Computed example of a mutant assay.
Amino acid sequence: MIWLTWRQFRTQALVAGAALAVLAAYLLVLGGQIRHGYATDVIGCAPEDCTISRRLFAGRFEAPVAIVSMLVIAAPGLIGAFWGAPLVARELETKTDRLVWNQSITRRRWLAVKLVTLGLAAVAVTGLLSLLLTWSASRYDQYVGGRFAAANFGARGVVPLGYAAFAFVLGVVVGLVLRRTVASMAIVIGLYAVLQIVVPLAIRAHIMPPVTTTVALNADTLAHANGFGLNSTSARIMGYTLPGSWSTDSVNQVFNADGTPFTAEQNRSCMTGEPAKDFDCLGTRNLHFQYTYQPGSRYWPFQWLELSAYSVLAAALSVFGFWWIRRRVS
């Protein structure tokens, strides 16, 4: 039975192996470039140029890391569509199930071997991709601090293993119920895409209550923000992220030491045209803002909790599949 499974699956396995090899080579090169850039632009920068150098480092690697992250997140959905959906649906469409399931092997045993063998292959491929990306982007993640972002969290650590198991079993079950390969593939991709939007935006942030703290405004703070905005009544920090944490606010209002809003008029009194003097002047005002976030120490608890949730869903779908193939398929 395992030999037959391999014979039917070998084309997909070879394609996956080739894609994995190409992406692995690219990630090894990218990881070396990120480490070199981190050593020169972040650690070894000249003090007067550090803010600019660090922003250049983040901007240089933002696009390649984001693209590969999206590929890793998409991989389980593609596996579910191209490996899982045709697994039973193709047998039912071509009527070969009448031959396969009239042999000495029962339907449930046939399905169990397929689920375990190909399911482990799906998890292994996705796990290798995630491991390579986690290593390659580790220095970038360490500095930029976006490990909790939707495009990063789902492509690092152990969570992709849960995605792969769930997407593969989902594909098998949808194909088993619909009995149409193409329709099943489309539904699997659609459901997986919806989950990848809903979970990060509406569910993940509420797994644990966020923490609020006061952050002093200084040169290092600005190096981890997207910008500093001013209007007639207040000043704001845009896109600040504490390294390693998950920011729940995209804009944070800046306050004086006494708690009153910092204004553009107050800022003008410190603007001399010399950055060093300007920052020294702002530093004497003890400017600060309130920052709400998920601490970096919660990264792995979030990872394990989400992995557990998807594993439970995969197990529940498997149970349903065993029941359906015995009771509903004829």
Rank of each mutant, 00 (worst) to 15 (best):
G239Y: 12
I237M: 11
W300D: 12
S250D: 10
P209C: 03
A257P: 02
G190Q: 04
I207K: 01
Q294R: 08
A264E: 15
A264P: 01
N252S: 12
I203Y: 07
R298T: 03
G229H: 09
Y299F: 15
L201Y: 14
R298V: 01
N226H: 10
Q253H: 04
Q196L: 15
S297W: 01
D249M: 13
E274G: 02
D280K: 13
L305I: 10
Y192C: 02
I197P: 00
V194T: 14
V254W: 02
Y291T: 08
V215G: 09
S250P: 00
E265A: 07
N252C: 07
C281Q: 07
T284N: 15
G244V: 01
Q253D: 12
G227I: 12
E265W: 00
L195P: 00
R268Q: 09
W246E: 09
T292R: 12
A223Q: 07
V198M: 08
T221E: 09
T213R: 06
T284S: 14
P275K: 02
G190H: 03
M271W: 13
L230M: 12
L201S: 11
P275M: 08
L195A: 15
T272A: 06
G229L: 07
Y291V: 05
D258M: 07
S234I: 06
R204V: 04
F228M: 10
S250A: 06
F255S: 10
D220F: 06
G227P: 02
T213Q: 07
G227M: 13
N218A: 09
A216T: 12
V194C: 07
L222F: 11
Y291A: 05
A216N: 11
I203W: 14
C281W: 06
N256W: 02
A193E: 00
T241D: 08
A223H: 04
L201D: 10
A264N: 11
G229I: 04
G296R: 00
D220Y: 08
V198L: 14
A276S: 13
Y192F: 14
P301K: 10
L191M: 09
S308V: 09
C281R: 02
Q290K: 15
A202N: 11
R268N: 11
Y240D: 05
L287N: 02
A225S: 14
R268V: 02
A264C: 01
T248Q: 10
